[in-house]
């Protein structure tokens, strides 16, 4: 990207922020409906001073990371089986597709009944959200592996695990990484849903607490933190893609 266009992605957020600043500075709008940027900033400082900022942020990040990691592991395992073996596909795929068709939040009552309001219910919900994008992308990636490369590998004596590891996995990496990026976004989405329903810590908890006490500074602070976390996750995943997919010959590279 040329240097002069670097500011373009920042233009819209800056305009939004300026609008917010000007709008609240007129004093026309009561704080309980929209807090000013200054109040949000003060709230964040106060939260940090109490040590509560890290507690809430840490709780959310932890849930996302554990849930995402679990989803990733299971999705890679099942996706590899389904992608490589017809029998596994017949056995698992119809069921998984049916489960996928259920709006994921429909699991919430069951999770709460089974697992209570503790950490595990939230982590499982996050994992459910992250699982399907990874699984679906991985399976279609494996299906799309160039048969010609597999033939080359067979000629040179590769089969079984060696074939999977040396040829199928690298060829599938682009789809797997796309799945992981979307999955991580989904993980944040489901985290908020879980925390809104039942929690005493976390960014979703701040949202609910702010709503119940009509503290728009608290709500907006939580939204800003969520936006930041989402953006950072996305940037991290894209950096991995750039690093590991330098070999691809697509439009982007």
């Amino acid at each position: 990207m040329a240097k002069r266009t670097r500011w373009i992605p920042l233009a819209a957020p800056a305009a939004l922020f300026a609008g917010w600043f000007v709008f609240t500075a007129t004093g026309r709008i009561p704080t309980y409906q929209l807090a000013s940027p200054r109040l949000v900033w003060l709230y964040l400082q106060q939260l940090a001073a109490r040590g509560a900022l890290w507690e809430h942020l840490g709780a959310s990040v932890e849930r996302v990371l554990i849930g995402f990691a679990a989803a990733f592991a299971v999705a890679v395992l099942l996706g590899t089986c389904v992608g490589l073996s017809r029998r596994c596909e017949e056995l698992l795929d119809p069921t998984l597709q049916a489960v996928r068709a259920v709006p994921s939040l429909a699991w919430v009552p069951l999770l709460l009944i089974w697992l209570g309001v503790g950490e595990s219910a939230k982590i499982v919900l996050v994992a459910i959200g992250a699982f399907f994008p990874i699984y679906v992308n991985l399976v279609s990636g494996i299906r799309g592996v160039d048969r010609k490369l597999v033939e080359v590998a067979r000629i040179y004596g590769y089969d079984g695990w060696r074939l999977a590891l040396r040829v199928v996995l690298p060829a599938t990496l682009p789809s797997l990484l796309v799945g992981a990026r979307v999955g991580l976004t989904q993980a944040w989405l489901f985290l908020v849903a879980a925390e809104l329903l039942a929690s005493t810590r976390g960014l979703g908890f701040l949202l609910i607490e702010g709503q119940q006490t009509s503290r728009t500074d608290e709500v907006l602070a939580a939204i800003l933190l969520l936006a930041l976390c989402g953006k950072l996750s996305e940037m991290g995943m894209r950096a991995l893609e750039r690093r590991w997919l330098r070999w691809t010959d697509g439009l982007a590279t």
Binding site: E151, A153, I155, Y156, G157, R166, P170, A171, W247
Partner: peptide, 26 residues
Amino acid sequence: KVAFVFQEPRLLPWRDVTANVAFAAR
């Protein structure tokens, strides 16, 4: 032992030249 040079090069796109040749080495 059979070796096959296909009509298209069929190189592994994620490996450099050396690694592509070494792919056939056991």
